[in-house]
Structures are given as structure tokens and as C-alpha cells.
Amino acid sequence: MELTPDLMTLDITMPIMDGIQTLEKILAHDAKAKIIMVSALGKEETVKNALEKGARSFIVKPFDRNTVLERLRKTMGRAAP
């Protein structure tokens, strides 16, 4: 917890601690952290849960370049060029 990145992307399916637990831990440490979930498990319930828990956005894998860029811009609060 030493770094303070401007933006983080998090997978959900991970060994040891899953992405949702990691999201909660990061936000408990820094409530203003900007986190985008990126996962192949794009079930409705999973997306809703992640957004309710404080993720700024959810990108379902496999993703296309334009979706990623658009979500990044939106999360960082910048308008599209």
C-alpha cells in the first residue's frame, strides 16, 4: 500500500484473494481510489456487486480497444478527443 496510482485495473478471478475482496481492501485504505474491474466473468450480478462496492467501471473480457479507452477517459474525468 505504498504506491498511490491514479488508476487501477483489477481482475476478479485470482488465487488467494479475489478481485472483489481486493477492491474492498483498497477502498478501505483509500476511499478515493479509482478502480476499474476487468474480468471474463461479466455476469450481471458480478458487475452490479463490483459497482456497488465502489468500482468506477467494469470491463468484460475480451475487450476491444475503444471500450477500454472510453472507460479510462470517463473514469479519469476527461472528455473524448
Binding site: 478471478t13 485470482m14 488465487p15 474480468s39 471474463a40 466473468l41 461479466g42 455476469k43 450481471e44 450480478e45 468484460v60 473480457k61 475480451p62
Partner: peptide, 24 residues
């Protein structure tokens, strides 16, 4: 493996059938 199985789970979710996957 994650993407192929994840994709199937998303499709099944749309059919109201719920599954979870372990890490590959």
C-alpha cells in the same frame, strides 16, 4: 481458459443460469 469459460458463464447468466468458475 479463463476467457472461453468466462464467456460461456456470461451467456448462461443471460439465460438465468448461474455459475462460478475457479481460477485456471
Amino acid at each position: 481458459g479463463n476467457l472461453v469459460c468466462g464467456g460461456a458463464v456470461v451467456r448462461l447468466d443471460q439465460l438465468k443460469r448461474s455459475f462460478d468458475l475457479s481460477p485456471p
